[in-house]
């Protein structure tokens, strides 16, 4: 195997050692571990049932021993809502990112590998997606498709792949020129085989670093969509909690406990992904480190 093609497991080993040495990246990693743990094991650790609507006396109560983070405008426990919401927010974030990365990788690889007319058309499409105002596009799509969890994932995935496609294309173009790829092509390997065996493994680190940064964007998008009333009311995410907080005027009546906890969760997760993304980016593009 040529020297410039380290195996995946070696790559991950290196990534982890770099991560451990990088304080910011490691902080992000820990934050994400925490939230993913909560999301996975939430159903067993949640102290309150989110479907438990208390009596009239339980509406919008500030934090107390009984309700550590207070209650919402329907008398539900905020902490319970946060834990349940983490599943939805992270699920949307992860699934939308997977879709976005898949689209970005396929389009970028195709454009870069085949070049010519295909490249021109795909890049034109990418440019259009980069130019179009993101939030109005997402809102219109979500409004048309209807608000449910899978549509939100679909809409976010469909509108966030353009940046990845560009990076992947650039990387593909440079790898295509390497001798072992040219050799494989001249020896008559099929295009798909060359892409999967030779190009994808080299493009993968770029995709990976991008994934983490896209995840931050996806979480933010979901939160904003839900806040603007396009969330899935059956699957309450942090964004939906913020939507309800806004609808009942939590800010104007000073109900900080309804507003800040879900907000803080969103900020922490986005920061976590961003920190991790920067660390990965630094590892993959070592020349940036010198700056």
């Amino acid at each position: 195997m040529p020297l410039d093609k380290p195996t995946l497991s070696l790559r991950f080993k290196r990534a982890f050692s770099v991560l451990y040495g990088n304080k910011i990246g490691f902080t992000g990693f820990l934050i994400l571990c925490f939230f993913f743990f909560i999301a996975l094991f939430g159903p067993w650790i949640k102290p309150y049932d989110i479907m438990d609507f208390g009596g009239a006396a339980d509406i919008l109560r500030p934090p107390s021993l009984e309700h550590l983070l207070g209650t919402d405008d329907m008398g539900r426990d905020i902490l319970g809502g946060l834990i349940a919401g983490s599943r939805i927010s992270l699920l949307v974030g992860v699934m939308a990112t997977v879709l976005s990365m898949f689209l970005g990788a396929v389009i970028g690889l195709t454009a870069g590998y085949f070049g010519g007319f295909i490249d021109a058309v795909l890049m034109r499409l990418t440019d259009i997606f980069l130019v179009l105002p993101w939030l109005p596009l997402v809102l219109v799509l979500a409004a048309i498709l209807g608000a449910n969890l899978w549509n939100i994932i679909l809409v976010i995935g469909l509108t966030s792949w353009a940046g990845t496609a560009r990076v992947v294309r650039a990387q593909t173009l440079s790898i295509k020129e390497r001798t072992y790829v040219e050799r494989a092509r001249s020896l008559g390997s099929s295009n798909l085989r060359v892409i999967l065996r030779h190009i994808l493994p080299n493009v993968f680190p770029v995709i990976f670093a991008n994934t983490v940064l896209i995840a931050a964007v996806a979480i933010l998008s979901e939160t904003t969509l839900s806040f603007l009333g396009l969330g899935d009311s059956l699957n309450q995410s942090w964004g939906m909690m913020l939507h309800y907080a806004f609808e009942c005027g939590a800010a104007s009546i000073g109900a900080y406990w309804f507003l800040l906890p879900p907000g803080l969760c969103v900020v922490l997760v986005v920061l976590g992904f961003t920190f991790l993304g920067y660390a990965l980016d630094e590892w993959i593009n070592p020349q940036i480190r010198k700056r």
């Binding site: 931050a216 939160t223 806004f246 800010a251 507003l259 800040l260 907000g263 986005v270």
Partner: peptide, 12 residues
Amino acid sequence: LYSLPTFLLGMV
């Protein structure tokens, strides 16, 4: 500021 959703900043 990048990680903070704009609407949340507004409400805060």
